[in-house]
Computed example of a mutant assay.
Amino acid sequence: MIEFLFELIGEIIIQFIAEAAAEAGMHSLSDARSYKAGPLLAGVGYALFGAIAGGITLWLLPEHLVRNEVLRKLNLLVTPLAAGGLMCLMGAWRARRGDTLLRIDRFAYGYVFALPLALVRFVFAQ
């Protein structure tokens, strides 16, 4: 059971690092552009970026951190929820500081980014 918790925390950390990097990149671009995409297009974009991030994490860590098949399926449900929650907390922190908020600073968009990342790792990791 402790092993599963360490594996789960590892998966959450991987997804959070990928989301934080994406958020940092999007914040750096947010001041440079005035075009705002609609929510559907933004969701599709975040899903695409999440899948790309999943591919990058596969290149860096090609093996599953969670070995058990049943626990991997549970991880597929829990990790995107946790990553979306962490992005929501990060957005609240940014709001308290008075920083500009992006869509990824909300739970739904953080989840939309994290789910394809987790799916790519679930399907293609060894």
Results as ranks from 00 to 15, higher is better:
2 I>E: 13
2 I>P: 11
3 E>Q: 15
4 F>L: 10
4 F>K: 02
4 F>W: 10
5 L>W: 12
6 F>K: 08
7 E>V: 04
7 E>I: 03
7 E>P: 05
7 E>L: 09
8 L>C: 01
9 I>N: 08
9 I>S: 09
10 G>H: 11
10 G>Q: 00
11 E>K: 07
12 I>A: 15
13 I>D: 10
13 I>G: 11
16 F>Y: 03
18 A>N: 05
18 A>F: 14
18 A>M: 01
18 A>T: 00
20 A>Y: 06
20 A>N: 14
21 A>N: 09
22 A>I: 13
24 A>S: 11
24 A>K: 13
25 G>A: 12
25 G>Q: 05
25 G>D: 11
26 M>D: 11
28 S>L: 01
28 S>W: 05
28 S>A: 12
29 L>P: 04
31 D>L: 10
31 D>S: 14
32 A>P: 02
33 R>D: 00
33 R>V: 00
34 S>A: 02
34 S>P: 07
35 Y>D: 03
36 K>V: 12
36 K>F: 10
37 A>R: 15
39 P>V: 08
39 P>C: 09
40 L>Q: 04
40 L>W: 03
42 A>R: 00
43 G>P: 03
44 V>K: 03
44 V>A: 09
44 V>C: 02
45 G>L: 06
46 Y>T: 07
48 L>F: 06
48 L>G: 04
49 F>K: 11
49 F>Y: 05
51 A>P: 03
52 I>K: 06
52 I>G: 05
53 A>R: 02
53 A>I: 04
54 G>Q: 08
56 I>L: 14
57 T>W: 05
58 L>T: 05
58 L>S: 01
59 W>N: 07
60 L>N: 11
65 L>I: 04
66 V>Q: 10
66 V>A: 01
66 V>T: 13
67 R>T: 03
69 E>C: 04
70 V>R: 13
72 R>W: 00
72 R>E: 03
73 K>N: 08
75 N>K: 07
75 N>R: 08
76 L>V: 03
77 L>G: 12
78 V>D: 03
78 V>Y: 07
78 V>P: 00
80 P>T: 05
82 A>V: 07
82 A>K: 04
83 A>H: 05
83 A>Q: 09
84 G>D: 07
85 G>T: 12
85 G>E: 06
86 L>W: 06
86 L>I: 10
87 M>C: 12
87 M>S: 12
88 C>F: 10
90 M>E: 14
91 G>A: 06
94 R>L: 08
94 R>E: 09
96 R>T: 01
97 R>T: 10
98 G>P: 01
99 D>Q: 15
99 D>Y: 15
99 D>E: 11
99 D>P: 11
99 D>K: 08
100 T>S: 15
102 L>S: 13
104 I>Y: 13
105 D>I: 14
105 D>E: 12
105 D>A: 15
106 R>Y: 00
108 A>D: 09
110 G>V: 01
112 V>S: 04
112 V>W: 07
112 V>K: 04
112 V>P: 01
115 L>V: 04
115 L>H: 12
116 P>G: 06
116 P>I: 07
117 L>T: 07
117 L>E: 13
118 A>L: 01
119 L>I: 14
119 L>E: 11
119 L>V: 11
120 V>R: 11
120 V>L: 13
121 R>T: 12
122 F>I: 05
123 V>F: 14
124 F>C: 07
